[in-house]
Amino acid sequence: RKEMTAACTPRRRIINLTSVLSLQEEINEQGHEVLREMLHNHSFVGCVNPQWALAQHQTKLYLLNTTKLSEELFYQILIYDFANFGVLRLSEPAPLFDLAMLALDSPESGWTEEDGPKEGLAEYIVEFLKKKAEMLADYFSLEIDEEGNLIGLPLLIDNYVPPLEGLPIFILRLATEVNWDEEKECFESLSKECAMFYSIRKQYISEESTLSGQQSEVPGSIPNSWKWTVEHIVYKALRSHILPPKHFTEDGNILQLANLPDLYKVFERC
């Protein structure tokens, strides 16, 4: 597991931080080997919608929660590849102030007048994250320049770009939802926020969305749709870069829909 690298990086740093090793061990302890084997050997059937997909393993048909699986995938990559990410360069710098204002204007932020003026909160978020810029760049390849612009994001899987519609809320939550006081809790909560931002979430995906850094293989055609990215990038990574937690067998994120021999018997009677 320590050699797990989802995106190509030129050289690998050895990380011996106790906090990170502890988080890696927790993933191992909570892992479910049968689910790992199923995901490793599954045959992708198709997307139901951005949140759900169908896959077959041996004779069984499964309904998989793409949102939760991708979130767990990105969390584990962030923990196992800690401080070893490439950088996704933004085509132009994104001012943190503008991103924070967009987030505060969104109902998702939960902002009320009692929280104070949005401009003041946005300025605080910019200054707060600028103070964390060195650590964010060093460990997470999340790059913020001296003017308070976001200029780079971590490359977690080759050819995958997170849904940038979720970027404003991500920046807001970096400042408000991460435990910045304790090292282990900081790395864990920061990785979880980043994983949620990178995950496939239906509120940020339309039929026209593209999450891939590449064009489709047909010359002159439109960019790959999110469905292509889910199948050929995300579920491909799920084959080798995730140890599913045991609770996925109990919380409805992986559901067995049918045993195909039983279905064949039904059709034979028709």
Score class of each variant (00 low, 15 high):
residue 1 R to A: 15
residue 2 K to I: 11
residue 3 E to R: 04
residue 3 E to D: 15
residue 5 T to W: 05
residue 5 T to L: 04
residue 5 T to S: 06
residue 5 T to C: 04
residue 7 A to W: 05
residue 7 A to E: 11
residue 9 T to W: 06
residue 10 P to R: 04
residue 11 R to W: 13
residue 11 R to H: 08
residue 12 R to W: 12
residue 12 R to F: 14
residue 14 I to H: 10
residue 14 I to N: 10
residue 16 N to Y: 06
residue 18 T to I: 10
residue 19 S to E: 04
residue 19 S to C: 05
residue 20 V to R: 03
residue 20 V to E: 01
residue 21 L to A: 05
residue 22 S to G: 15
residue 23 L to C: 03
residue 23 L to F: 04
residue 24 Q to I: 06
residue 24 Q to K: 07
residue 26 E to M: 13
residue 26 E to I: 06
residue 27 I to P: 00
residue 27 I to K: 03
residue 27 I to F: 03
residue 30 Q to G: 15
residue 31 G to L: 07
residue 32 H to S: 12
residue 33 E to Y: 08
residue 34 V to G: 10
residue 36 R to V: 06
residue 36 R to A: 09
residue 37 E to S: 11
residue 37 E to C: 11
residue 37 E to N: 09
residue 39 L to G: 01
residue 39 L to P: 00
residue 40 H to P: 01
residue 40 H to G: 10
residue 41 N to L: 12
residue 41 N to R: 10
residue 42 H to S: 09
residue 42 H to M: 13
residue 43 S to A: 13
residue 43 S to M: 08
residue 44 F to D: 01
residue 45 V to L: 14
residue 46 G to H: 15
residue 46 G to L: 15
residue 47 C to H: 13
residue 47 C to Y: 11
residue 48 V to W: 09
residue 48 V to A: 08
residue 49 N to S: 13
residue 50 P to C: 07
residue 52 W to Y: 12
residue 53 A to L: 01
residue 53 A to M: 00
residue 53 A to Y: 07
residue 53 A to K: 00
residue 54 L to N: 00
residue 54 L to C: 15
residue 54 L to A: 06
residue 54 L to Q: 00
residue 56 Q to N: 11
residue 56 Q to G: 09
residue 57 H to S: 13
residue 58 Q to P: 01
residue 60 K to Q: 10
residue 61 L to I: 08
residue 61 L to C: 05
residue 62 Y to I: 08
residue 62 Y to K: 00
residue 64 L to T: 07
residue 64 L to C: 10
residue 65 N to T: 01
residue 65 N to W: 00
residue 67 T to K: 03
residue 68 K to D: 05
residue 68 K to A: 06
residue 69 L to M: 05
residue 69 L to T: 00
residue 69 L to E: 00
residue 71 E to G: 04
residue 76 Q to K: 01
residue 77 I to F: 02
residue 79 I to P: 00
residue 80 Y to E: 09
residue 83 A to N: 04
residue 84 N to M: 02
residue 86 G to T: 15
residue 87 V to Q: 07
residue 88 L to N: 11
residue 89 R to N: 09
residue 89 R to S: 15
residue 90 L to K: 02
residue 92 E to W: 07
residue 93 P to S: 07
residue 94 A to W: 14
residue 94 A to G: 05
residue 94 A to Y: 15
residue 94 A to H: 13
residue 95 P to C: 13
residue 96 L to T: 05
residue 96 L to M: 07
residue 97 F to A: 12
residue 97 F to M: 14
residue 99 L to K: 04
residue 99 L to T: 06
residue 102 L to M: 10
residue 102 L to R: 15
residue 102 L to S: 15
residue 102 L to F: 06
residue 103 A to Y: 03
residue 105 D to F: 06
residue 105 D to I: 06
residue 106 S to A: 10
residue 106 S to G: 15
residue 108 E to Y: 12
residue 109 S to L: 11
residue 109 S to K: 05
residue 110 G to S: 13
residue 110 G to R: 12
residue 111 W to V: 09
residue 111 W to S: 05
residue 113 E to A: 09
residue 117 P to W: 07
residue 118 K to G: 05
residue 119 E to R: 09
residue 119 E to H: 08
residue 119 E to N: 12
residue 120 G to A: 06
residue 120 G to C: 09
residue 120 G to V: 11
residue 121 L to M: 09
residue 121 L to G: 07
residue 122 A to R: 01
residue 124 Y to G: 15
residue 124 Y to C: 13
residue 124 Y to T: 10
residue 124 Y to Q: 13
residue 125 I to Q: 04
residue 125 I to V: 11
residue 128 F to A: 13
residue 129 L to T: 03
residue 131 K to V: 14
residue 132 K to S: 04
residue 132 K to T: 01
residue 134 E to N: 07
residue 134 E to L: 09
residue 136 L to G: 01
residue 136 L to T: 03
residue 138 D to N: 05
residue 139 Y to H: 04
residue 139 Y to P: 00
residue 139 Y to D: 03
residue 139 Y to N: 05
residue 141 S to G: 14
residue 141 S to E: 05
residue 143 E to L: 10
residue 143 E to A: 07
residue 144 I to V: 07
residue 145 D to M: 01
residue 145 D to P: 01
residue 145 D to F: 00
residue 146 E to S: 12
residue 146 E to D: 11
residue 148 G to R: 06
residue 149 N to M: 14
residue 152 G to M: 03
residue 154 P to L: 01
residue 155 L to W: 08
residue 155 L to D: 12
residue 156 L to P: 00
residue 156 L to A: 00
residue 157 I to L: 13
residue 157 I to S: 02
residue 159 N to F: 05
residue 160 Y to S: 01
residue 160 Y to P: 02
residue 161 V to M: 14
residue 161 V to Q: 11
residue 163 P to E: 12
residue 165 E to F: 05
residue 166 G to V: 01
residue 167 L to S: 02
residue 168 P to Q: 02
residue 170 F to E: 01
residue 170 F to W: 03
residue 170 F to S: 00
residue 170 F to L: 08
residue 171 I to H: 00
residue 171 I to G: 00
residue 172 L to P: 00
residue 173 R to M: 02
residue 174 L to D: 00
residue 175 A to T: 14
residue 175 A to S: 07
residue 177 E to F: 09
residue 177 E to Y: 09
residue 178 V to H: 00
residue 178 V to S: 02
residue 179 N to D: 11
residue 181 D to I: 12
residue 181 D to G: 11
residue 183 E to K: 03
residue 185 E to T: 11
residue 188 E to F: 08
residue 189 S to W: 03
residue 190 L to D: 01
residue 191 S to W: 00
residue 192 K to R: 14
residue 193 E to G: 02
residue 193 E to Q: 07
residue 193 E to L: 06
residue 194 C to Y: 05
residue 196 M to S: 09
residue 196 M to T: 13
residue 196 M to N: 08
residue 197 F to Q: 02
residue 198 Y to N: 03
residue 198 Y to S: 02
residue 199 S to V: 00
residue 201 R to G: 04
residue 201 R to A: 01
residue 203 Q to K: 14
residue 203 Q to W: 04
residue 203 Q to L: 08
residue 204 Y to F: 11
residue 206 S to V: 09
residue 211 L to E: 14
residue 212 S to C: 15
residue 212 S to D: 12
residue 212 S to K: 10
residue 212 S to E: 15
residue 213 G to F: 14
residue 213 G to T: 12
residue 213 G to Y: 15
residue 213 G to C: 14
residue 217 E to C: 13
residue 218 V to K: 12
residue 219 P to H: 11
residue 219 P to M: 10
residue 219 P to K: 10
residue 220 G to Q: 13
residue 222 I to M: 13
residue 222 I to E: 14
residue 223 P to W: 14
residue 225 S to W: 05
residue 225 S to E: 10
residue 225 S to F: 07
residue 226 W to T: 01
residue 226 W to Q: 02
residue 227 K to G: 05
residue 227 K to I: 04
residue 228 W to F: 13
residue 229 T to D: 10
residue 230 V to R: 00
residue 230 V to L: 05
residue 231 E to T: 03
residue 231 E to D: 03
residue 231 E to W: 02
residue 231 E to Q: 09
residue 231 E to V: 02
residue 233 I to H: 06
residue 233 I to Q: 11
residue 236 K to N: 09
residue 236 K to P: 10
residue 236 K to T: 08
residue 237 A to Q: 07
residue 238 L to N: 00
residue 239 R to F: 01
residue 241 H to S: 09
residue 242 I to Y: 04
residue 244 P to L: 03
residue 244 P to H: 01
residue 244 P to D: 01
residue 245 P to A: 04
residue 246 K to L: 11
residue 246 K to R: 14
residue 249 T to S: 11
residue 249 T to W: 08
residue 249 T to A: 14
residue 251 D to W: 03
residue 251 D to T: 09
residue 251 D to L: 04
residue 251 D to H: 05
residue 252 G to N: 15
residue 253 N to W: 15
residue 253 N to V: 15
residue 255 L to A: 07
residue 256 Q to G: 07
residue 259 N to Y: 06
residue 259 N to T: 10
residue 259 N to R: 13
residue 260 L to N: 10
residue 260 L to C: 08
residue 261 P to A: 12
residue 261 P to T: 09
residue 261 P to F: 05
residue 261 P to L: 06
residue 262 D to T: 08
residue 264 Y to Q: 15
residue 264 Y to K: 15
residue 266 V to W: 08
residue 266 V to I: 15
residue 267 F to K: 15
residue 268 E to D: 08
residue 269 R to Y: 04
residue 269 R to P: 08
